[in-house]
Each structure stands twice: as structure tokens, then as C-alpha cells.
């Protein structure tokens, strides 16, 4: 019996409430060498099934190292990590099924496209994960491409390199979604896109989260998009979890956020000012429209403020 088998399975994992449980996770790059650098320090957090969690932090804060642990691209050095019902601290992990269930979208995923046709590229993962039936593969690929808003019949035989930048990214995303993962981990999925492209990707991710119950973990630098989309935000600072709270609560700590070199979302700043002056803004007011409605409501009942 190996040591890791003795690990106590956290209750949340055992009863299926948690998608990810990290318990004092540590990671050091180049250990025992003069270049050694500790990237994660006692990271402890839980992501519930069906949640949309954003991970933010300054470049080099350890957030990318953390998310690469989630499908065992980086193996656990020290500490506990459960993803779905996989114990990633164990010596042996069934990587094939794990990676099929935990989809990972890297920064600029369009740079990993390689196949002759869009269809082949989207089927690449399916083939690797053992979907042997060709028809089944194509059906899953079609579902995924349609999910990301592409016209399947129009693009399936096109070369992925002939698509526009935004389309390439959506095809790359479809390549991950085709596996119907239960957890979707994304490293800055909107980087480099224009506002419309950003909105498309974010609304797609939100809808996958809401309608398909897929747990989403998204790394992002854009505080406005994080603020409006995530249920919870985890802030990494120098390898540690500095904050783990809801968007509204997090951005009330304006000074701390600024000291970490992060930005405060416009609407959070606005609401904070109103609250400072004694007005009450509901906690779920995050988008421009919601805030606008809240202000109108305040105007209706100014006397009570």
C-alpha cells in the first residue's frame, strides 16, 4: 500500500459536492538547484461542482502553475489535490480519463491547431481519449462546433489556418469542449481578442457553465470581465491564496487590490463610492445595466437612503 492511499478523502469530494479540493499544495520549480523558485505555498481551496471561479493575480503569482496541476500537466510535489474523484497526489493517476474530464484551454489556444481540416482538429482529442467510433466522433465534434457558434457544414472541411483569429480560437475551444469535460480550465481565454470576440467567448463560457453544469475555472487579467462573470474570485499573491471571496466583497478592499497591482472594475468602484456615502447597492449588481437599474431604484426612494 503506497503512502498516498492513506490520504483521507475530503468529505466534499466523497459526496460529490466539490470539483476541486486543494489542501496545502506546494510546488517549487527546479528544486534543489540555485535557480529554485517556490511557485505555490500551502494553497488550500475548494471549487464546488457547477461553480464559475476566476483566478486572478499578478504575472508570476502562481496562478498558471496552479491550474496546470488540475489535469496533472504538473504533478503534485507536496500536499493534497483532488479533482473530481481523482487523487492527484497519488503516484499513479489515470491521466487519460482525467484529461478527458478536465478540459484545459491554454493562452492563445489557436496556436495549437495543426490538422488539415477543422473537423480533424476537433476530433484529435476525441481520438486520443478513445472515442473509436468515427460517427460518434463526428457527432460530438459537430455538437462542439455548433456550441461555439460555428456553422458545422461550412467549416468542417476548411483548413483551420484559413479562419479568422476569433474563429480559430473558437475552433480550438471546440476541440476541448468536444470531449464534454466536467471541468473547464481556461488560461486567459479572451487575451488578444477585440471586445466583440471577448463578449462572444465569455457568454459562451457562461452558458456552458449555467446550462450544462460544467465547472469553470478561469484565469484572467481583465478585472471587469472577472467581476461580471465569476461566482467567486480567488486571488493569488506570490504563490499563496491571498483572497477567496465573491466579486463584490473582494473589490470592496480597494487599497489591498491596488497594492497587488490589480485593477478595480469600473462598476465596483462606482458602487463602492455610493456605499461609502451610505447608499445600499444589492450584492448581485455587477453589469452596467444592473448598476443602472439599482441607481434608478435608489432615485425612486432617495428619502430612505
Amino acid at each position: 500500500m503506497s503512502k498516498s492511499d492513506k490520504v483521507v478523502i475530503p468529505q466534499a469530494v466523497a459526496d460529490g459536492a466539490a470539483a476541486i479540493v486543494a489542501d496545502k499544495l506546494n510546488f517549487t520549480y527546479n528544486p534543489k538547484s540555485p535557480f529554485s523558485k517556490q511557485a505555490l505555498k500551502d494553497v488550500t481551496l475548494t471549487v464546488n461542482r457547477g461553480e464559475f471561479v476566476a483566478i486572478v493575480g499578478h504575472t508570476g503569482s502562481g496562478k498558471t502553475t496552479f491550474v496546470q496541476h488540475l489535469n496533472a500537466l504538473i504533478r503534485v510535489q507536496n500536499g493534497g489535490l483532488f479533482v473530481l474523484d481523482y487523487n492527484l497526489s497519488a503516484k499513479k493517476v489515470d491521466l487519460k480519463t482525467l484529461r478527458g474530464r478536465v478540459g484545459m484551454v491554454f493562452q492563445y489556444p489557436e496556436y495549437q491547431l495543426f490538422a488539415d481540416t477543422v473537423l480533424d482538429d476537433v476530433c484529435f482529442g476525441l481520438k486520443n481519449f478513445g472515442v473509436t467510433d468515427k460517427e460518434k466522433r463526428e457527432q460530438l465534434a459537430q455538437n462542439a462546433l455548433e456550441l461555439v457558434g460555428m456553422d458545422f457544414d461550412k467549416v468542417k472541411n476548411k483548413s483551420p489556418f484559413d479562419l479568422s483569429g476569433g474563429e480559430k480560437r473558437r475552433v480550438a475551444l471546440a476541440g476541448v469542449l468536444a470531449m464534454e469535460p466536467q471541468i473547464l480550465v481556461m488560461d486567459e481565454p479572451t487575451a488578444g481578442l477585440d471586445p466583440r470576440g471577448k463578449r462572444e467567448i465569455l457568454s459562451l463560457v457562461s452558458s456552458i457553465n449555467r446550462h450544462k453544469g460544467v465547472t469553470v475555472v478561469m484565469v484572467s487579467h481583465d478585472m471587469n470581465e472577472v467581476y461580471e462573470n465569476a461566482d467567486r474570485i480567488i486571488v493569488f499573491r506570490e504563490g499563496e491564496v491571498a483572497y477567496d471571496t465573491t466579486p463584490r466583497q473582494l473589490f470592496k478592499k480597494e487599497d489591498e487590490i491596488i497594492s497587488m497591482n490589480l485593477e478595480i472594475p469600473h462598476m465596483a468602484k462606482f458602487c463602492n463610492e455610493l456605499e461609502r456615502q451610505g447608499y445600499v447597492i444589492p450584492d448581485d449588481c455587477k453589469t452596467v445595466e444592473q448598476v443602472f437599474d439599482a441607481v434608478l431604484a435608489l432615485k425612486g426612494g432617495v428619502g430612505n437612503a
Binding site: 472594475p265 462606482f270 458602487c271 463610492e273 456615502q277 452596467v288 441607481v295
Partner: peptide
């Protein structure tokens, strides 16, 4: 920018706010 969009919306319903307010705090005030 979101604060500019909010300012425009508020102005359209009769609020007396500076247009193109990039700073959300000023807009809040």
C-alpha cells in the same frame, strides 16, 4: 469604457453627470 457607458445611460434619464467620465469614482460622487 463601462463608466462612460453608465454615465451616458444616467444622463439620458436626466441625471446631471459629466459625460465621458472615465473615472468611476468621480461618477459615483
Amino acid at each position: 469604457p463601462r463608466s462612460v457607458a453608465l454615465a451616458a445611460k444616467l444622463k439620458s434619464v436626466g441625471f446631471d453627470v459629466t459625460e465621458n467620465c472615465i473615472d468611476a469614482r468621480t461618477l459615483g460622487v
